[in-house]
Simulated assay, not measured.
Amino acid sequence: MRLLAILLLLAPSPAAAFLARNGMEAVQVGTTEIGVPFDSGKMDTDYWCAAGDFAQRALDLPVTTRLWRASPKPRGAGDGILFTLDQSNKAEGAGLSQFGAGPRDGSISIGQAVSAHCRIEIPFFNH
């Protein structure tokens, strides 16, 4: 399953891919997996934003739903990131550093992924 998900991340994105509020694409690649293809110049937190936004708006999941990174660290050059909603599929040690309350299992809620990591990007147009 993980190999299939990685291959899907490397393939060209489908026309129907979800466009997150930060301009990145996200796609469901399994029952509980969300793939965010590589996007040049983006930080890892931007990938969390796209996965969280997809889970919240496309899958209509509650904001309290937990999200884990399924791709191991470090992310290779040109690689996207695979996320999971299933704790048993998480990559050990690949979560974000956490401060404050909440579980210390490498996950964040999809609400936190969106509220803390989504920056709306306004494209620059030359007229």
Rank of each mutant, 00 (worst) to 15 (best):
M1H: 14
A5M: 08
A5K: 03
I6Y: 12
L8T: 05
L9C: 06
P12A: 07
S13Q: 09
A15E: 13
A17G: 08
N22V: 07
M24Q: 15
E25M: 12
E25P: 02
A26P: 04
G30N: 13
T32I: 05
T32W: 09
T32R: 15
I34L: 10
I34G: 03
G35M: 05
V36I: 08
D39Y: 10
G41H: 08
K42S: 13
K42F: 07
M43F: 12
M43R: 15
M43A: 14
T45N: 13
Y47S: 04
W48H: 05
W48P: 00
A50D: 03
A50F: 04
G52K: 03
A55M: 07
Q56S: 13
D60T: 12
L61S: 06
P62V: 09
V63T: 14
T64H: 08
T64V: 13
T65F: 06
T65I: 08
L67Q: 06
W68Q: 04
R69L: 01
A70I: 03
A70W: 00
P72N: 08
K73F: 00
K73R: 14
K73C: 00
P74C: 07
P74I: 00
G78W: 02
G78I: 04
D79V: 01
D79Q: 12
I81Q: 01
L82P: 03
F83I: 04
F83T: 01
F83W: 00
L85W: 02
Q87P: 07
N89L: 15
K90A: 14
A91D: 03
A91I: 02
A91H: 01
A94Y: 01
L96H: 02
S97L: 12
S97Y: 06
F99R: 14
F99L: 10
A101R: 13
G102T: 11
G102P: 04
P103A: 15
D105H: 10
I110Q: 00
G111V: 05
A113D: 01
A113T: 05
V114P: 01
H117V: 04
H117K: 08
C118A: 10
C118I: 06
R119T: 13
E121F: 10
I122M: 10
F125W: 10
F125Y: 13
H127G: 09
